[in-house]
Design a protein around this nucleic acid. Structure first.
Lengths: 300, 300
DNA sequence: AAATTGAATTTTATTATTAAAAACAAAATT
DNA sequence: AATTTTGTTTTTAATAATAAAATTCAATTT
């Protein structure tokens, strides 16, 4: 067999749904119209109509497509659950790396991994090819891939890159007008940080989410596809590290909250120097934490 | 047929080369040794040895691999010239886009393009998948790809991103010690700019190369894989634009040389403020030029 | 003339197949 | 006996073949 008929199956079911809304004896719309409604090509529409005709649900002759009877549950085609999408694959991949602490230099086995993740091998290939742009994986001459990232060096460079991008975001943020959304959002974030700080004893797990929210808010003022794409990778890796590294979590989070608060307040006060200073302080400490957790993990 | 036997063919020829350096009657080394020398697996070595045996060039029995006669030209296997590598493909792709001024929104025809570029379709797929990380192309739901970049917006965002990265490079550069390589390189670049300025009337075409050299020198002080990767894309696109946009070339280059010189001299004088100012000025004007050339191109 | 369908063509996604690599086991050599 | 080397099998990856879907173009109906 070549490609799957998943697309046909879901289209056919959608066509059944359309029929269900119509009266017996009435005419189905033209093929082009159906194709548009079903977001699919006319070829599929025609194949689906043909099956509908075979099943005696419609009477199809030329442009006469008369509904004979309402479709029932039994007419629906079963759909094989679709493979994880690109984003889901990304998540699976990073979770796998961080959960099992896959060391740099490991050769990646496409066939095995694609089975493990439940995706077609060539989707995984494409995904890795995309990652290779970030130097996280490398293609070997003899074929196959090796994981080249997640070394201390990688963490350092990623953190440095993050620093450059976020410092830029801070500078842009401070030059925004007073009636901009961002000031309200920052005020809200300040309150959320204060709330979490009060209940830290019980809620310290919630910091990971708040951290991501804060950084993405700051970065949201930069409207740039390259920056955005880079930040997706950065937050992904920092996020997963927070997830797996449970060492000293409460103390770390308490310190981070203080740093965030200082940074937020400096920005709210439009104090450029102090904002940059606070940002720098937090980002540098974040880098150290990431590095320490990497070393710690290796040793364990 | 499944995969090509290119790898075998080149290995076989390499094995002939090895035989050519040996005396008739002597023994070839062990399979593992050959495999190492030929940078190939033992499977190929054995297949190659078998063919050598069939051609009566060697007498192969167990670990006895006796050379019967020296291989000649006629024994060599013809190799189908290998497909363009990743970097060559990249070049071909961008040249195609800029030369034919392919507009944003164009749907890319994998089959046709892969024929045009002389690469296997799936290599092109992987390449595009990599580019999609930069938002230059997008995958459509119905399948296939569309070129989404190379709009004015793209140019603006790219230029802004470049600005962030190069300003960071400048700051890092200025904090380097006096005995660092970079100062010598900058001094050389100053001279090269002065030379070109003198002969601008005849040599103004040479600026494109010098421009790339200058920017990559400045950026070379940042040791960061993400920055480097981003800069590869940036210089690629700026470079190709210089190549195709011949409008006002001499005047543009003359102005750019002056801006470069001011920037270089400010850095050589360790004047932080002036350096940043000059860099900003040049980068902003570069952005305008890129934008203008895009608009111009569209109109033409 | 416009809309719609029928049929043919092109293109893409996926599998089956073969080449190559890697792993394993047996034999020969030191 | 230990090491090296070869023979064999198993696994993995690259590519051509193929079926599904999209697109195009001509013919037909309204």
């Amino acid at each position: 067999m070549a490609r799957t008929d998943d697309r046909f199956r879901s289209a056919y079911n959608k066509l059944l749904d359309i029929c269900a809304t119509m009266d017996v004896g009435s005419q189905l719309p033209a093929e082009v119209v159906l194709a548009e409604q079903m977001e699919v090509s006319r070829t599929i529409v025609r194949t689906a109509l043909q099956k509908l005709d075979e099943e005696d649900l419609i009477d199809w002759e030329g442009r006469q497509k008369t509904l004979i009877k309402r479709p029932e549950q039994k007419h629906r085609l079963t759909q094989s659950e679709s493979a994880p999408s690109g984003e889901e694959l990304e998540k699976l991949f990073f979770e796998w790396i961080l959960r099992f602490d896959v060391p740099a230099g490991t050769s990646l086995n496409i066939a095995q991994l694609s089975r493990q993740f439940g995706v077609p091998a060539h989707s995984l290939q494409e995904f890795l090819s995309g990652l290779s742009r970030f130097g996280l994986v490398e293609r070997r001459a003899k074929g196959g891939w090796i994981l080249s990232g997640f070394t201390a060096e990688f963490a350092v460079e990623l953190s440095d890159f993050r620093l450059v991008l976020e410092m830029n975001a801070v500078r842009q943020l401070l030059s925004l007008p007073d009636d901009h959304d961002i000031w309200v959002k920052l005020k809200d974030l300040e309150r959320e940080h204060e709330d979490l700080k009060k209940d830290l004893k019980t809620r310290y797990h919630d910091f990971s989410t708040l951290d991501e929210k804060f950084h993405s808010t700051v970065n949201s003022v930069v409207k740039n596809r390259f920056v955005l794409e880079a930040q997706k990778l950065i937050s992904l890796i920092f996020h997963y590290h927070y997830m797996w590294d449970k060492h000293d979590e409460r103390e770390r989070n308490a310190a981070a909250i203080e740093e965030h608060l200082e940074w937020i307040r400096a920005m709210l006060a439009h104090d450029r120097l102090h904002s940059e200073e606070a940002a720098l302080k937090h980002l540098r400490r974040s880098k150290e934490t990431l590095l320490a957790s990497l070393k710690d993990h290796r040793r364990a």
